[in-house]
Measured scan of single mutants.
Amino acid sequence: ATNIVSKVKWYNSTKNFGFIEQDNGGKDVFVHKSAVDAAGLHSLEEGQDVIFDLEEKQGKAYAVNLRIK
């Protein structure tokens, strides 16, 4: 899926990962520091509106092509 609009559930800049809620009630989506860095960001804030693409690797959903709404 591409261009999903949602909100950051939480992000831990010390552990370099977090999760984004899915508005459709699906499972929370993992977001890694590499996606945050690629977006030119230093961190994410809880409740922040984001747009991302969903990529599945080894049966897990990852946020990629992250951008701020």
Results as ranks from 00 to 15, higher is better:
Asp49Glu: 15
Lys9Glu: 01
Lys27Met: 09
Phe19Ser: 02
Glu46Pro: 15
Lys60Met: 10
Gly47Asn: 07
Lys69Arg: 11
Phe19Leu: 04
Glu55Asp: 08
Asn12Gln: 07
Lys7Arg: 12
Val8Trp: 02
Glu56Phe: 15
Gln48Leu: 09
Ala63Glu: 03
Leu44Asn: 01
Asn3Gly: 11
Asp37Gln: 14
Lys69Gln: 13
Phe52His: 03
Glu45Thr: 13
Glu21Pro: 04
Ile4Ser: 06
Leu54Ser: 03
Leu41Ala: 08
Asp23Ala: 15
Lys69Pro: 15
Glu21Cys: 15
Thr14Ile: 12
Gly25Leu: 08
Tyr11Trp: 10
Glu56Arg: 13
Trp10Asn: 02
Asn16Leu: 07
His42Ser: 13
Ala63Asn: 01
Leu54Gln: 04
Phe52Lys: 01
Ser6Arg: 06
Glu45Asp: 10
Asn65Val: 03
His42Trp: 11
Ile4Glu: 04
His32Lys: 02
Leu44Pro: 01
Ala61Gln: 14
His42Phe: 12
Asn12Val: 06
Phe17Asp: 01
Leu44Trp: 02
Ser34Val: 08
Lys7Cys: 06
Val50Leu: 10
Asp28Cys: 07
Glu21His: 14
Phe19Glu: 02
Asn12Gly: 05
Gly40Met: 07
Ser13Arg: 13
Leu54Pro: 01
Arg67Pro: 03
Lys69Tyr: 14
Ser6Glu: 02
Ile4Asn: 08
Ala35Leu: 03
Asp49Met: 15
Leu54Arg: 07
Gly59Thr: 04
Ala35Ser: 09
Ala38Thr: 08
Asn3Cys: 11
Phe17Leu: 02
Trp10Asp: 01
Ser6Thr: 04
Ile4Met: 10
Glu56Asn: 11
Val5Met: 11
Thr14Gly: 10
Asp28Ile: 04
Trp10Phe: 10
Trp10Lys: 03
Asp49Gln: 14
Val50Lys: 00
Tyr62Trp: 13
Gly18Tyr: 03
Leu41His: 07
Gly59Ile: 01
Gly26Gln: 11
Arg67Glu: 05
Lys27Thr: 09
Gly40Val: 03
Glu46His: 13
Ser13Gln: 11
Asp37Thr: 14
Lys7Leu: 05
Lys27Phe: 11
Ala39Pro: 00
Phe30Asn: 00
Ser43Tyr: 13
Asn65Ile: 03
Lys7Glu: 02
Tyr11Thr: 00
Tyr62Asn: 06
Lys7Ala: 05
Asp28Glu: 07
Gly47Arg: 06
Phe30Trp: 05
Ala1Val: 12
Lys60Leu: 10
Lys57Ser: 12
Lys9Arg: 09
Lys69Ser: 13
Val36Ser: 00
Lys33Trp: 10
Lys15Asn: 06
Gly59Asn: 08
Phe30Tyr: 07
His42Ile: 13
Asp23Met: 15
Leu41Lys: 05
Asn12Phe: 07
Gly47Glu: 04
Lys33Ser: 08
Ala1Phe: 13
Phe17Met: 06
Asp28Lys: 04
Thr14Val: 13
Lys15Trp: 12
Ala38Gln: 10
Leu41Gly: 04
Phe17Gly: 02
Ile4Asp: 03
Glu21Leu: 15
Gly26Met: 11
Ala61Phe: 15
Val8Glu: 01
Asp23Ser: 15
Val31Asp: 01
Val64Tyr: 05
Phe17Arg: 00
Glu55Leu: 13
Asp28Met: 07
Ala38Lys: 12
Ile4Arg: 10
Tyr62His: 08
Lys69Glu: 11
Val5His: 14
Val8Ile: 09
Leu54Tyr: 08
Gln58Ala: 13
Asp49Arg: 13
Ile51Met: 12
Asp28Ser: 05
Ala63Trp: 02
Lys27Pro: 14
Asn24Trp: 11
Asp28Thr: 05
Lys69Asp: 11
Leu66Val: 09
Ser6Met: 06
Asn12Ile: 07
Glu55Ala: 12
Ile68Gln: 08
Ile68Met: 10
Ile20Phe: 09
Tyr11His: 01
Ala38Cys: 09
Ala1Thr: 13
Asp28Gln: 07
Trp10Ile: 03
Ala38His: 08
Asn16Cys: 13
Ala1Ile: 12
Asp53Lys: 03
Gly40Trp: 05
Phe17Glu: 02
Lys60Pro: 03
Asp23Gln: 15
Asn24Cys: 12
His42Glu: 13
Ala35Gly: 03
Lys15Arg: 12
Ala35Lys: 04
Ser13Thr: 12
Val5Cys: 13
Glu45Cys: 14
Phe30Met: 04
Ser43His: 12
Lys27Tyr: 10
Glu21Gly: 13
Gly40Ser: 06
Leu66Asp: 01
Gln58Gly: 14
Thr14Trp: 12
Ala63Cys: 04
Asn65Leu: 03
Leu44Ile: 08
Ala1His: 13
Phe30Cys: 04
Asn24Glu: 10
Ile51Thr: 10
Asn16Gly: 15
Gly25Tyr: 08
Asp23Tyr: 15
Ala61Asp: 07
Glu55Lys: 11
Gly40Pro: 01
Lys57Arg: 13
Asp53Ala: 03
Leu66Cys: 03
Val29Glu: 00
Leu66Asn: 00
Lys33Thr: 04
Ala61Trp: 15
Thr14Leu: 13
Asn3Pro: 07
Thr14Ala: 13
